[in-house]
Design a protein around this nucleic acid. Structure first.
Lengths: 355, 355
DNA sequence: ATTGCATATGATAGCGCTAACATTCGGCCA
DNA sequence: TGGCCGAATGTTAGCGCTATCATATGCAAT
């Protein structure tokens, strides 16, 4: 193999062997040549490079025998098209930028999964960036994404800064904001009404006869909208002002949360992880029953409908949101320019045993 | 604004206003011009395009006054560099391809998070692809990634097919395989020994006096390695052959699993989600205690150390694996060519109340 | 035979940027 | 005073493709 490899270093030899009908495979190509280009394939197949380009992109335009010859040359050289060059020449990158606050341990992963599943079969690539809930980093990431000239940007929420919004507005590509329904969207929207989700939970707690409500979770824009709906509805129905506890983003903090909420008999957690952490705290305090919601000293409702919430005991009541549907819808909105640009995917209050 | 916008359509007018010292911002640029290029900025600033290029990439090489002038022009035009063109010219894309089986509800999200956190500050972009545990799709995704000419590829596991391996070997870029320790790696490795993880759990069950072992989970390569270690160790210690139940990838299937495992008194679940699902089934069957491991009729150990496992009751014993550390290490391996190329990040058997 | 038209292929000119090599100009040393 | 150097800027020639417009060829319709 070494000898072969050295021998192969002369491109003419390659060509010669191929002409002689050897069935060289790409494994046998010398390893110190530059990656083969369109024109290398063209030369080997005895056609012009545009014909090779057509074999890759528009095979129907090429006569079967020519195509076969070119495909053979591509295989022999181990040709991998260079989409960077292709994108520059065609002004089409076939990529979409995706910006999420975080991908780890988060429901946004479902959204990324959903949109990838829709886009990958269409030969779009996903360029992923994370803002980590940091406005400055978000702006940097948006600029970084845009400089790769994606065909569209899909993001969770809206840009936190005016600079970010301006950047997107000037990009002249489809922009999809997700997981909320901004009043003044940049372009398209695929989400649900976080305020109404808060209202729905408050309404449920009130119907259940709960008196002292609390909200736990982050203070990101979506969490805050949920809180506002929750608070407004509780106040409108004459309850004591609900309490709001802002927690770190990991669920462990929520375990200790109930100590800071004396007298509270119903808790809306901004996401299921927090809800489950909070329930762990309740259990330690002897305030969790395996019975139905009515038997719970403290009712708990989460948001997200994690699979895990169905499995634990007591099972977790939650606002169910279809993260993957949001992703798929967002993908559709990037591909179709016409039609409705504001899609409310709604949510559902799923009542189980926790509250 | 409309009038201004129309008026601005004439580039000469733009230039004129700028010359007059107006503080136009990019919001005021007409919306039907093509995205500004380097040379548009250069023309406006009265320099050559290479100088603009230097202001963007090597600002120290440009005199402060020139730089200021160029930066002003960039701001006024709302210039966003075109990295596609830059990548083609410099043969450097500043991107890495990342291939995971799935990102939703999975520990791989931690790995993606970890590597992004390391790469994004260095101005690398992450191109994300999912194989969905499908060998054909994996090969397609690898080819798609490579055609974008990433500087490196980071993937979970090894390519399932020879074609995939060959593709990567010929790419002549750093390749990092993660979450396992292949005997014959393509290039670099950041993972742990799945076989030994299985051994560790079997050893623990034996020490605990358990007699009838079972393994539940997927039949992907890593799950299978865990099973093999588990099985080998159990057999070597004279136990009955352990049972293996292959489940769908969602945890719900595991809820019913114990019905198919009569007489089993210790279960190793290939991941924490399955473990928690299995425990939900045990609870329904009255086979779960809130006491310590020794009190459990059926011991359960998971893998992954999800935060949730610590929160539920009984708390979940698990093989702890640092997914984010795997990601960060993989990122480091893509950036540094020298040094150790096979990094075993190990695992830890964390014993809690479930087994 | 001529026209017309579809099919198959090619020549040419960029896409927007950067690498590599000039060039200019003042200052400083011998 | 000539030569040399570094700092600042420019010129040129691509990177590997694709859009666009030719150019051949065969064949049915006139």
């Amino acid at each position: 193999m070494l000898a072969l490899s050295l021998w192969m270093r002369n491109p003419e030899s390659c060509r010669f062997t191929a002409t002689m009908g050897s069935n060289l495979t790409e494994t046998e190509i010398s390893s110190d040549e530059a990656a083969p280009t369109l024109s290398a394939v063209a030369k080997r197949a005895g056609v012009s490079s545009i014909t090779v380009s057509r074999v890759v992109r528009l095979p129907d335009l090429v006569a079967p025998e020519t195509r076969a010859r070119v495909e053979k040359a591509m295989r022999e050289l181990g040709y991998v098209p260079n989409l960077v060059a292709g994108a520059l020449a065609s002004a089409k990158t076939n990529s979409v930028g995706v910006l999420v606050p975080t991908i780890a341990n988060s429901i946004f992963a479902d959204t990324v999964q959903g949109l990838s599943d829709k886009l990958e079969p269409l030969d779009y690539s996903v360029i992923l960036a994370q803002s980590r809930y940091d406005a400055a980093r978000e702006d940097r990431m948006l600029a970084a994404l845009l400089s790769r000239r994606p065909e569209a940007i899909i993001m969770v929420g809206s840009p936190a800064t005016e600079d970010g919004k301006r950047l997107l507005r000037h990009a002249r590509i489809p922009i999809v904001e997700t997981w909320e329904l901004p009043i003044d969207p940049i372009d398209a929207v695929a989400g649900f009404d976080n305020y109404e989700a808060g209202v729905a939970v408050a309404r449920h707690f009130i119907a259940q006869g709960r008196q002292h409500l609390a909200f736990i979770g982050g203070d990101d824009p979506r969490g805050t909208r949920r809180w506002l709906g929750f608070e407004d509805h509780a106040l409108a129905h004459g309850l004591q002002p609900p309490r709001r506890l802002i927690l770190e983003r990991n669920a462990s903090g929520s375990v200790a949360a109930h100590a800071n909420l004396p007298g509270v008999d119903a808790v809306f957690a901004a996401n299921d992880a927090h809800a489950i952490g909070f329930m762990a705290g309740l259990r330690k305090a002897g305030l969790l029953r395996d019975g139905p919601a009515a038997a719970q000293p403290v009712a708990v409702v989460g948001l997200g409908d994690l699979e895990m919430g169905r499995l634990i005991s007591p099972s977790l009541s939650t606002i169910s949101v279809h993260g993957d549907a949001i992703g798929r819808t967002a993908a559709t909105l990037t591909l179709e320019r016409g039609g409705e640009r504001r899609i409310d995917l709604g949510f559902e209050l799923v009542l189980r045993d926790s509250g």
